[in-house]
Design a protein around this nucleic acid. Sequence first.
RNA 1: GGGCGCGUAGCUCAAUGGUAGAGCAGCGGCCUUUUAAGCCGUUUGUUGAGAGUUCGAUCCUCUCCGCGCUCACCA
Length: 512
Amino acid sequence: MLKDEFSELEEQRLSKLVKLREQRLEPYPTRSHKSHCNADAIAAFEKAEADESTETVEVVLAGRLRAIRNMGKLSFAHIEDVSGKVQLLFRVNELGEEKLDEFVRFYDLGDFIEASGSMFRTRRGEVTLQVADFRMLAKALLQLPADKDEVVDGEVVRHAQLSDPETRYRQRYVDLAVNPEVRENFKIRAKIIKALREFLDERGFLEVETPILQPIYGGAAAKPFTTYHNQLHQQLYLRISFELYLKRLLVGGLDRVYEIGRDFRNEGISFKHNTEFTQLEFYMAYADYMKIMEMTEQMVAQVAQKVLGTMKIQYDGHEIDLTPPWNRLQIRQGLIDQAGIDIQQYPDADSLAAVMKDKKIDFKPGISRGKLINTLLETYLEPIMIQPTFLYDYPRDISPLAKAKLEDPTTVERFEGYIGGMELCNAFTELNDPLDQEQRFLDMGHTYSEDEEERNPMDEDYLRAMAYGMPPNGGLGLGIDRFVMLLTGQHTLREIILFPPLRDADQDNKKD
RNA sequence: GGGCGCGUAGCUCAAUGGUAGAGCAGCGGCCUUUUAAGCCGUUUGUUGAGAGUUCGAUCCUCUCCGCGCUCACCA
C-alpha cells in the first residue's frame, strides 16, 4: 500500500489533501478548462502588446507548480506544461485573504494547478498571469527532486538537479518531470522517426508490419528470446530482424516496403547495444547495394536537416558532416592501408589467422575467415570512421543473405555505414537465387557449431517464397536508437530509450 | 560472466573507528512585483541489506542487492 510507506514529508502533503477535501475543494477534479498552453499565452500577450491593443488577454492556464515564492500579501509561482513555463502572480487585492491563504497553505511544488486571469508584464519584465481564480487539478503526494534554475548571463544554471542514473532510469517519469533536456531528446527522437517515414513515403515505399513472434528466427546473427504459445503448443521466438518477412513481401509484388519496429536480442547490454532496439528496414526491388548506399546518405542527411536544421552535427568532440556523398571504403583496401594485410592473399581462415598471429592481433581461435576479417575491421577500421563512411564488400560467410560479387565469390555486395566510430546501418544486394540461398543455409550449418548464434536456422518457407521468384533488390537495416544518439549528441542508448532495462530492484529478490 | 569503482536526508553533496552535517525542498513566523526572492527559527536519516572484527562501525573485513565504467559477446 502506498500509504504505509509515506514519509513525514509525504504525510504533510496527505494532510493538505485531506484539508482541501474538508473545505470541499476536490484535489483531483475530473475536468480542466485550460484555454492556452503556456507558450501560446505568452505569445498571445506579446502580440497584443505589439499591436498596442487595449484588450486584456484572458486565459485559463494549467500546469505543474515548479516554483513558489510567497511574499506575504502576494505570491509568485511558475507553472510548467509541455510548452514551457509561465509565471503566475497571486495578489491579495484580486483574490482576498482567504483565497490567497488557500494557495499558501495547501499548494506544493509538483501539484497541478489551473489558474485563470489576464496576462500582464511585471516590473521586471516577465510576462505573467495575474490570477483571478485558481484550483487544484492534481495534488502531488510525493515530492519531486528539488531543482532550481538560476539565470546567469542569460544561461540557465540548474542547481541540485536529479542526476543519479539509477533513479533517472527507474523512475523516468521523475527524470522527465524535472529535466527538460531529457524531454527534448525524446521529442527529437519522435521527429527523427517521422522524418524517416516521410523520406520513404515520398519514394513510394509501403509501411508494413510483420510478426514479432516468429516460429523461426533469422535475418541476423544474434541469440533470440524464446517464448511459448499455450494454445498453439508452439515455441516462438521474438524476432531478431524483420528481413525474411519483408523480403517475402517482394515476392508478393510489394516492390518497396519498410518497417519500423522493435527487434529483440538476448545479448549483452552496452552504451550501443540494448536488448530491444528500434530498427528501420527497407527493401527496394530493382535496386542494388550501391543504389541503397546513395539512398541511405540522402535519407540520413535529409532527416538531420529536417530535425536539426543542419547536416553538421557535434558528436563526442567532433564536427561530423552528414552531407552526401559520404566516404566509401572497400574493406580490402582499408585493411591493406590500415593493417597492412591484403585479405585477398589469404583465401582461407588458416592462412589469414597465421598472418594475424604474426602481427600479434588478438582473435578468438577457430573462427571463420569472415569473422577474422570482421575482427580486423573492428580493430583497424571502425574506430577511425568518425566522418560518415560506407565500408563495403564483406566476406561471404558472415553474410548469408547477401549476393556474391560477380568477380569474387568469397565476397558479397554488402556495406555498413559508420558514423562517429559506430555502426549505424547494414545493407546488401539481397540474394534472390533460391538454390544459392539454400546452399548458404547449409554452409552455415557446416561452418558454425549448433550453439553459435551465426548459425541461422534453415527457413524452408523463406526458400519456397524465393523459389516463386523474388525480384532483384537491395535492402537496408538502420539502428534508429543509434541514429537518435548521434542527432541528440548522447553517448549512451539509455539516454534516448525511455525505459532502459534494469535489474529488478526488489530487495526480496536476492538470490538467483 | 570477468575486472575496477560507487551506494550517507526528497535532491545535490560533506564528515569521522566514538551512533552524522550543509544548501535546496519541508515546517513555523515576517514580508505587496519576486524569479536559486530575502530575513528569523526549526525538523529531517534503519548511512543499500545482512554478518563479522571491535568496548564502540557509516568508516575496517566478508557475503548479498543495485548502479556506473570497462572487457568479453554483439548491430
